[in-house]
């Protein structure tokens, strides 16, 4: 257990760094979580994070990696909907690491 602190607000997270309350998420918080993960957020990173948040909003789950790849391909084209490209952005796994930055719970099925 612990908490992220940004601009005076405190956001609690679990032992793996996932936010306990997805409602407290904001972009400053995302930047801070990314920093803790050694990720410098670029536009490409934001595209993935925003996509995950939209997917979660619609379906109440974070998609598995292969679903993320498939849906990113549909939306942004083959270059971005590519597993290697996604792992280049999020070395510890696009679903796991990007979800953490997006303030979402750990994806179903991720151990």
């Amino acid at each position: 257990m612990g908490a992220y602190e940004v601009n005076g607000t405190v956001a609690e997270h679990d032992e793996e760094g996932y936010l306990t309350d997805i409602g407290v998420w904001n972009t400053d918080l995302a930047d801070m979580i990314a920093k803790a993960e050694n990720i410098d957020m670029s536009d490409a990173h934001w595209e993935v994070v925003n996509f995950l948040r939209e997917y979660y909003e619609e379906y109440q789950i974070a998609p598995a990696v292969r679903i993320l790849v498939k849906e990113m391909t549909k939306k942004f084209g083959k270059e971005k909907g590519d597993q290697k490209a996604l792992y280049a952005l999020f070395p510890y796994g696009p679903a796991k690491q990007a979800c953490k930055i997006a303030g979402l719970p750990k994806p179903t099925g991720c151990v």
Binding site: E58, Y59, Q60, I61, P63, A64, I67, K70, E71
Partner: peptide, 14 residues
């Protein structure tokens, strides 16, 4: 409780 009914609509993706 979390409303997971929306998740059934994701099954097609899977």
């Amino acid at each position: 409780m979390k409303n997971f009914s929306k998740t059934y609509r994701a099954l097609g993706d899977y």
